[in-house]
């Protein structure tokens, strides 16, 4: 759990972050969004004290971070940055083992943990013996995530972790990050520019503008009820409807009795996919299959807007 309580940061007398209060609950995935220069990275880096705040309190699992020894605090927090920041002179295994070794784990436990993590981020075990420059950007970022998770930290901080990757790699890593979140139950706070990424991944979204929190809520709350014009513009203006649709599943609007022809769509697919199919096939209903592949009913165009 991460609690911000009236946190402030100034540079040269200019407030960069002001009166910031919000809480990321245990196990929650929170996205911190806002335009460039709005103070997202500053906010994130105040948690592991790469930047010292000028006012307010930050608590980690109920403990004021100011009361913890600096290195001890940092070893409890996983931190992932855009360009991975791997140590170029260490093998992948040694990179991942950094924090466990700092914590003095016995070597056999470190080694077992590294094996687990390579599997978790879906890297081939042979990758462990390589050096960072031998890996693609996407693979390096997987290592970055593995390294951050190595000592089983209670929270994971990520600063635009996929910002430097191509769209396909980014999508693949997003899907895996969600799987990792579900598998590990970590509290995650992720900075991103990309509102779609936030909507796709996060349980909660915090929107910053000029260092102030302008809205905090679930993706559905924010898309459904933007707090002001700034938020409305930021989350995509006229595209908001489609984003809301993407939050819902075909199964949520299933009509069991209804029949339709053609290829079926999975109940777990987002509604935007159903809409796209209807447009392509010039039809107003699609058959829906459940996760075993049997036809469960149909979804109708009229239901998408109710």
């Amino acid at each position: 759990m991460i609690e911000f309580d009236r946190v402030a940061k100034n540079y040269d007398g200019r407030p960069i972050v002001a009166d910031l209060s919000f809480t990321v609950a245990q196990g929650e995935f929170c996205a911190l969004v806002g335009s460039s220069g709005s103070g997202k990275s500053t906010t994130l880096r105040m948690i592991n004290r790469l930047i010292e705040r000028d006012g307010g309190t930050i608590r980690l699992d109920g403990q004021d971070i100011a009361t913890l020894p600096l290195e001890q605090l940092r070893r409890r927090i996983g931190y992932v940055i855009q360009s991975a920041g791997l140590f170029p002179h260490w093998t992948i295994r040694n990179n991942i083992a950094t924090v466990p070794r700092l914590l003095g784990w016995p070597e056999d436990r470190v080694s077992k943990r590294v094996d687990e993590l390579l599997a978790l981020v879906r890297l081939d075990p042979a990758t462990g013996a390589k050096y960072p420059h031998q890996l693609s950007g996407g693979q390096q970022q997987r290592v970055g995530v593995a390294r951050a998770l190595a000592a089983d930290p209670s929270v994971l901080l990520m600063d635009e972790p996929f910002g430097a990757l191509d769209p396909i790699t980014r999508d693949a890593l997003r899907v895996e990050l969600r799987a990792i979140h579900q598998a590990t139950g970590k509290t995650i706070l992720m900075v991103t520019h990309d509102i779609d990424e936030a909507v796709q991944l996060a349980d909660k979204i915090a929107i910053l503008a000029d260092g102030k929190l302008v809205q905090f809520g679930t993706p559905a709350e924010i898309l459904g009820h933007p707090a002001n014009d700034f938020v409305r513009d930021f989350i995509g203006g006229t595209g908001i409807g489609l984003k809301l649709l993407s939050l819902q599943r075909v199964g949520d609007h299933l009509r069991p009795g209804l029949t339709a022809t053609g290829a079926s769509i999975a109940a777990s697919a987002p509604l935007t996919e159903a809409l796209s199919e209807m447009i392509l096939r010039h039809t107003d209903r699609l058959p829906v299959c459940d996760d075993k592949g049997g036809i469960a009913g149909a979804v109708a165009l009229a239901d998408l807007v109710t």
Binding site: N48, L50, L70, E71, Q72, L73, R74, R75, I77, Y79, I81, Q82, S83, A84, G85, L86, F87, P88, T98, V99, L102, R147
Partner: peptide
């Protein structure tokens, strides 16, 4: 970035 990672990981 390498230095930032080192700090963030808790290297003294």
């Amino acid at each position: 970035t390498v230095l930032e990672a080192a700090d963030a990981m808790g290297l003294r």
